[in-house]
Each structure stands twice: as C-alpha cells, then as structure tokens.
C-alpha cells in the first residue's frame, strides 16, 4: 500500500476519525509503529507486576494483601489484552515474549526502580498507575481498533489501582511520624521517574510526529506530563506530602503547575539497561518462564491426549 494515492486515502480515513481494523490496508510504517508501541506496552504491564509482587507476602494486613494480589492479577490481564492486540498486526506472542526474555525488548523505565518499603506500593498505585491512566485515557482513542478496545478495557480497571494506592499513601501520611516519613521518602524517590514515564520532550521524541499524524496518540508527551502534574500536585498537598521539586510553582495565567527539568541522563541510562533493577527484572521473567514450562507442557499434553480420544470416539 505504499503508493501515494493509497497513503492519501489512509490519511483521509484517519482524519475523518475512522478506526483502522486488522484486515484494513495500512502503511507498513503504521503497522510497525503499532507493533513497537503495543508490545512495549504489553511488556511494561508484565514487568510491572514484579516490583509490586515483591510485597505481596509482606502486605501489612489481609485486606491490603488481597487488594495487591487483585491489582497484580489485573496487570497480567493488561499484558494479555495488549499482546493479543499486537498479534492482530501479524506478529506472534511467542516472538514478543522471546524478545522480552532475550533482553531485546523495551518496557517502561519506571519498573527498573526497586520497591524498598511498603509505602512504595502505595506510591506506585498513586503515581505510576496515575501516570499510566493519563496516558491510557488518551490511547483509548487511538486510531487502531484493537489497541483502542484493549485500552478502554484497561482504563476501567486502572481506577481501582490508583485509588488503592492513594488510600495506602493517605493512611501512612496521616499516621505516626515514622509512617509519614516513609510515605514522603517514597514520594521523593518515585516522583521524577513517574514524570519520565511520559517519555522525552516532544522536541526529542523521534516517533511523536508520525504517531500524532496517524492519531495513534492525540496528545504529546509534554502535554500529558503537564496534565499529570496538574492533577497530582493538589492530591499531594491534600495528603500533606511535598513534591521533591524546588521549581514547582503554580502559574495562575496558564493554570499549570510549572516544574523543574527532568534528569534526562538518568532516563536514558535506565532505558539503556543501566537502571537499578534492569537485570533483576529480566532474570525474574526468565525464571518465571522456565518454572512455568511444565505447566504449559502438561496442558498441551492433556489437550493432545483428549483430542486423540475424541477422534477414536
């Protein structure tokens, strides 16, 4: 479909707000960009289970434990919806999973930071899922039908993630001084990595132009980041927590919370694999995959045996 007339036709469909479905003709670059984006998103959901899974056995109460298990299970589901959406573009899930296990796939840099205390679990729900919601609410309108539908399903579940996180943070922030200190410490460590989740500045984001043109995204990284900051600062204040940014200042004219510059060196280091937990995360995935092999084998053998039996009958 690479000739100009077809390209023009495709752009017209996009501009008219039509959704593109798997069997529709689409530019090869649109397909490639979507596979890249959706698979990275899927990997992020899967790897994202690890920092939180780390605290399931140590949750401070049965209710918190149940909530955390439910959240982590949701994230597995999110990964599954997204791998399926990627598969509609003609790539196998096995191939994508293999890329992740080989350490060749990218996923959100945020999940390469460690979860040191229970407060981190609250702050992840509040900030990390909060940032994800801002991004995903936009992606629910993406021009590619299967991606958009997966996002709508995911958005419905994310609210619970954010609220359970906020409840943990608010409880600790209103607790004894040691608890409040722990909550503040978690905010201090997670704030900047959360802002990095939205990706580089628009001016340094190589894929942004074409993604906007094809309405895979409808807002820029910087617009989404600003929206997240505007939403979050008042929440932090309401809980009596401070944001670790001396340059944070409200601008009554634009109604935006202006904020300081992100440490982009850190961002690119973590993306390149030099974050605090990159290796640990991939190794945990590999181990889970290895340890689960017998389950997959048994299920396949059982299915094959039953298929044979019903053949005879």
């Amino acid at each position: 479909m690479e000739d100009n007339a077809k390209m023009e036709q495709f752009q017209q469909r996009i501009d008219a707000g039509e959704k593109i479905e798997p069997k529709d003709s689409m530019p090869e670059k649109y397909r490639k960009q979507l596979i890249r984006m959706i698979s990275q998103h899927a990997h992020s959901e899967i790897v994202g289970m690890l920092p939180e899974g780390n605290w399931i056995t140590r949750a401070p109460s049965l209710q918190r434990k149940l909530s955390l298990i439910a959240k982590v299970q949701d994230e597995a589901g999110h990964g599954l919806y997204l791998y399926c959406a990627a598969e509609t573009l003609g790539i196998d899930r096995d191939e994508l999973v293999q890329q992740l296990l080989d350490g060749k796939a990218k996923y959100s840099s945020i999940f390469n930071y460690p979860t040191l205390t229970w407060a981190d679990i609250g702050v992840i729900g509040w900030l990390v899922d909060g940032a994800a919601i801002v991004n995903q609410t936009m992606l629910a309108k993406a021009s590619y039908g299967p991606y958009s539908r997966a996002m709508i399903r995911i958005c419905k579940e994310e609210n619970f993630h954010k609220r359970q996180g906020m409840e943990i943070v608010a409880t600790m922030a209103a607790g004894v001084p040691a608890q409040k200190k722990m909550a503040q410490d978690a905010v201090n460590r997670w704030w900047w990595p959360s802002l990095m989740m939205f990706g580089p500045h628009d001016s340094d984001s190589p894929n942004s132009g074409v993604l906007l043109k094809w309405k895979v995204k409808t807002k820029t990284n910087d617009e989404l980041r600003q929206r997240f900051v505007n939403l979050t600062v008042p929440q932090a204040r309401a809980m009596g927590l401070s944001i670790p940014d001396p340059n944070l200042k409200y601008d009554p004219e634009t109604k935006n919370w202006n904020f300081g510059e992100i440490d982009w060196d850190e961002f690119y280091q973590v993306i390149k694999g030099n974050g605090p937990c990159n290796e640990e995360r991939i190794e945990a995935r590999r181990k889970a995959h290895r340890d689960g092999a017998w389950v997959r084998d048994a299920a396949a053998a059982y299915a094959a045996k039953h298929a044979d039996k019903s053949n005879v009958a």
């Binding site: 589901g77 919806y81 899930r93 399903r153 579940e157 997959r296 299920a299 059982y302 299915a303």
Partner: peptide
C-alpha cells in the same frame, strides 16, 4: 471481549473466566 491463548477449549474457558470475567 477479546482473545487469548489456550491449549484446549476447557482451558480457554477457564482462562477467559480469569481474564474477561474478573469483576
């Protein structure tokens, strides 16, 4: 609702329950 991978119909049904009927 979506799709999933499973080795047979029975497991497909169980996985579908876990993935698409969680709440």
């Amino acid at each position: 609702a979506g799709s999933l991978h499973a080795p047979d119909a029975e497991m497909a049904l169980q996985n579908a329950r876990d993935v698409y009927a969680r709440r």
